[in-house]
Amino acid sequence: MMEERSVYDTPRLACDTAIQYLQPGVYHMQSPNYKRDDPGNYTNDFRCKYRMHAADSNGMLRFDCFFFQLEDSQYCLKDSFAVARDEGAQTITNFYCGRTKTPKTLFAKNIDVSFKTDSSGTDKGFFCTVMSKEAVAGCGSLPCGKRYLGPGTYSLLSQNYPENYGNNIYCKWELVASDPSNTVDFSCSSFDMISWDNSCEWDWMKVDDVRHCNNNKPAPQQFTGGVTVEYSTPDLPHKTRKGFKCTVSIRDSKLANESN
């Protein structure tokens, strides 16, 4: 979990049907009457909606709930907490209620949350956070985003490398070889991403959806046609690390075959 400072000393999001474009940072939402030390029950017949987008078009939102207790019911037909996110052209919505059907950590560019209560029972409610991350790469690195690459060698660097990276960063490189038959070699000569709580939750790199952290440097790997690399950093500027220096080499498969 985040440190208490990062959880509670953050701006509170207001109910709003208009889209809120969140600048990099951490925000929170909470049910009516929620108190940190003694959560009070929320009210009946209440409606609230949050529509959140990352202000950075290449950035990302991270959604977490640290406290969640709603009136339980089958299919969450009474009180409910709905979380919707876009995945490609599809919108996926999950409904939560009770004390066991609780929201999971979620990454998405856009997130909508709807909280509604009926006229019957209540419970202590929820306290959730939204971290808005910006897309930043290091000097001399390929910029974040989708890149079509011809044969050659390219650098992937964390922000400020070899100095410590900043906080609230999410960068995704979708690297596509200009010829889909070309070979893509990926390797890291330096890797230092250790979460402040020794988990793999806050500081990490993903290579083709496999997560690496805590000095578990990715092994050299070879792909055909492309590779996707992501990295994410926490909201704690005093607990960041030096990051990484990696390279991606695109080799023309036709030339390689001719040389053999």
Score class of each variant (00 low, 15 high):
Met2Asp: 10
Glu4Asn: 01
Tyr8Arg: 10
Arg12Ala: 12
Arg12Lys: 14
Ala14Tyr: 02
Gln23Asp: 13
Ser31Cys: 14
Lys35Pro: 06
Asn41Thr: 10
Thr43Pro: 05
Arg47Ile: 05
Cys48Thr: 07
Tyr50Phe: 15
His53Thr: 05
His53Val: 01
Phe66Leu: 15
Leu70Arg: 09
Cys76Pro: 05
Asn94Met: 11
Phe95Trp: 02
Gly98Phe: 10
Pro103Asn: 12
Ser114Ile: 13
Ser120Asp: 15
Gly121Lys: 15
Thr122Cys: 14
Phe126Met: 07
Cys128Met: 14
Thr129Lys: 14
Val130Thr: 05
Pro143Gly: 04
Cys144Leu: 09
Gly145Tyr: 13
Gly150Asn: 11
Gly150Cys: 00
Gly152Tyr: 06
Tyr154Gly: 07
Tyr154Val: 08
Pro162Trp: 02
Ser178Phe: 03
Ser187Ala: 07
Phe191Lys: 09
Asp197Ala: 01
Glu201Arg: 14
Met205Ala: 07
Val207Met: 01
Asn214Gly: 05
Asn216Trp: 05
Pro218Thr: 00
Pro220Tyr: 13
Val227His: 06
Thr228Ile: 15
Val229Ser: 08
Glu230Phe: 02
Lys239Asp: 10
Phe244Leu: 02
Lys245Leu: 02
Cys246Arg: 04
Thr247Met: 11
Thr247Pro: 01
Ser249Ala: 15
Leu255Gln: 07
Glu258Pro: 00
